[in-house]
């Protein structure tokens, strides 16, 4: 228990820092940074768009690692982390897709193109949303944790294969935007927002784990009471 309390304290610290960093990033991104000379004001979408994907990568990867650890070690806490990673990943996946298509409309003229990254992230969303739906349909905690861990593992392994298949399918694609090619007034808010989103994702993960832990403990106790009564 001491360890999980320490995690919560770390989470609170990450949350507080996230608020500070979000404030600084918003100020730098919306006020200080000049409009991009090619994309103009649209450039500013990048400060929330790209950090969303960093948070998605982090949380889904956490869900994948926790799922493997659950299959090997069979401790409930890994199941809690996997669940938290998937759920928060879905949230950032949604913000990433919304900002991406709001960026796409004025840039490419359409809200949606079958760009490899866009398509892969949509498949990721469907995969992990399916994972969350699956959890809702299973009652036994051990079976649910095991089945969910397997689904998360397969789903995560599939992501690179989806990416390359869509890339070859759509041979036309935009080169990746890399932060090194843009002006430092634009790099700074981007970096700060990335840190802010990672901190926010960390904070949310710790709270989601706490929730899963409370629910999981309650579920176990209810099962034990049911077994004792019936």
């Amino acid at each position: 228990m001491a360890q999980s309390q320490r995690v919560q304290v770390l989470g609170t610290a990450a949350g507080a820092l996230a608020v500070v960093a979000l404030g600084a990033g918003l100020y730098l991104g919306l006020v200080v940074a000049p409009p991009d000379f090619q994309m103009g004001e649209l450039q500013r979408i990048m400060y929330v768009h790209f950090p969303s994907w960093i948070a998605v990568a982090l949380t889904y990867f956490a869900a994948f690692v926790a799922s493997i650890l659950y299959l090997v070690k069979r401790q409930d806490r890994f199941d809690y982390w996997a669940q938290a990673g998937a759920e928060i990943g879905v949230v950032f996946n949604i913000t990433g897709l919304i900002t991406g298509s709001l960026w796409g409309r004025p840039t490419w003229g359409v809200y949606w193109t079958w760009d490899p990254r866009l398509t892969t992230t949509a498949i990721m969303l469907v995969t992990f949303a399916g994972y969350l739906v699956l959890r809702g349909f299973m009652e036994d905690p051990d079976t649910r944790a095991r089945v969910a861990a397997l689904v998360a593992t397969i789903g995560f392994l599939n992501v690179p294969i989806v990416y390359f298949s869509v890339k070859w399918w759509r041979t036309l694609h935009q080169p990746q935007s890399s932060p090194s090619t843009v002006d430092s007034d634009m790099v700074r808010p981007l970096r700060i927002m990335m840190v802010a989103f990672v901190l926010l994702a960390t904070y949310l993960m710790t709270r989601r784990v706490a929730l899963a832990e409370a629910e999981g403990t309650a579920e176990r106790e209810a099962l034990q009471m049911g077994a004792a009564n019936g």
Partner: peptide
Amino acid sequence: FVTASYIAT
């Protein structure tokens, strides 16, 4: 579009 993305996020 910028406003909409920040608000949505």
